[in-house]
Design a protein around this nucleic acid. Structure first.
Lengths: 207, 207
DNA sequence: GTCTATACTCCGATAGAC
DNA sequence: GTCTATCGGAGTATAGAC
């Protein structure tokens, strides 16, 4: 934890601790102790605790949306003006997020999905700025797949999809459902979850 | 705000302020000022800020799950041993929550859906204790509707449904999507949202 | 039993020396 | 760039008044 610069050491420690205990329950004093830097360094590099969070989130979701746009461009180019297959469109939206977030050592999913439901000054605007173009593209493309659906129906279903995805990212099954014969190994696998999610949403958009 | 007892005045003020600014951003000093009670009254009646939140949540979700169980009992009695229709089963699960939460002046939905994604000591156990019997009943009943699905598939799809419902409860569309011709009045209506959610999930379980 | 006054510890933020 | 010192405000605990 000492070979890197101060800023990076703070980011690494914060990512871990936020995921473990949640954002409000993690103090800057803990973070700077783990990172072996001075307390005031956080304010110097990030302005505030919220600023630190914002940088963490930005560094995480920006590449995901870039990848979504890239895949969408490629798919639409290949389709040559024809509507996409809805299942492919949904996979383009979900797979980069699930893959990327679950490859980072399972720290960011918890942080991110919690954030979607807790307001933070300036953070929602940032998320919207990054996500809005993707959502617009998604709704437009899905309207071509399912022309019998109104834009309102497609937008609200897009939000159902986001809600389901967020819930998938951070929930653990350990807590619930005794006596149903659930195989924990099966239901914990991310491949299983992703494919189930894609199937659920694909059918949901059509239903 | 002065005719009721101290405890109730605290609960009312907290419900409003938590919904408005979020749980971490609301101080006990604000709450007690709004409720016109002494700061220490919170600790006397609820033990801690988390205890206050817990009571608020419990008082809200317990009647919802009682209603779910009641509707499920009635539907299964009426079906006389035959499997339920999946759409009816899903409505039994979703409608009490959406109706009840949206009838309370739109304060609890925000609080509740945020809570699902932020860990609080003791609160997750309480939620699990209340929700577990309902989920077990739901998975069992859905397995009778859709016998070709494994319990793992049904459980994970149940969680997708919960995620979509939570997202529906607190999201506002104002932020997003310019240029898609979205009718805000349509997409903001809870009847519209509920029926869309039920259709989305019914198809999703089958797909 | 209820409620209050007060004090304690810890938090995030900042000013200013180095 | 980094550190020390310090500030106001947060949640909490308790002794004691009614």
């Amino acid at each position: 934890m000492s070979g890197l610069g101060t800023k990076q050491r703070i980011l690494d420690a914060a990512r871990t601790l936020f995921a473990e205990h949640g954002f409000p329950a993690t103090s800057l004093r803990e973070i700077t102790k783990h990172a072996e830097v001075n307390l005031a360094a956080v304010n110097y590099h990030f302005g505030s605790k919220d600023g630190l969070l914002k940088e963490l989130v930005n560094e995480c979701i920006e590449p995901i949306n870039t990848e979504r746009i890239r895949l969408l461009d490629a798919a639409e180019a290949e389709a040559g003006g024809q509507p996409l297959v809805m299942r492919d469109l949904i996979r383009i939206f979900l797979e980069p997020a699930v893959r990327e977030l679950c490859d980072q050592g399972s720290a960011m999913p918890c942080i991110l999905s919690r954030l979607h439901h807790e307001p933070h000054a300036g953070l929602e605007e940032m998320m919207s700025d990054i996500l809005a173009p993707t959502i617009t593209r998604f709704v437009t493309a899905s309207h071509r797949c399912l022309p019998h659906r109104t834009p309102e129906e497609l937008l609200i279903r897009g939000h159902f999809m986001i809600g389901a995805m967020l819930h998938l990212l951070d929930f653990n099954c350990e807590e619930l459902v005794p006596g149903l014969g659930i195989n924990e190994e099966v239901i914990s696998g991310y491949d299983f979850r992703l494919e189930q999610l894609i199937s659920f949403c694909t059918a949901g958009f059509d239903g």
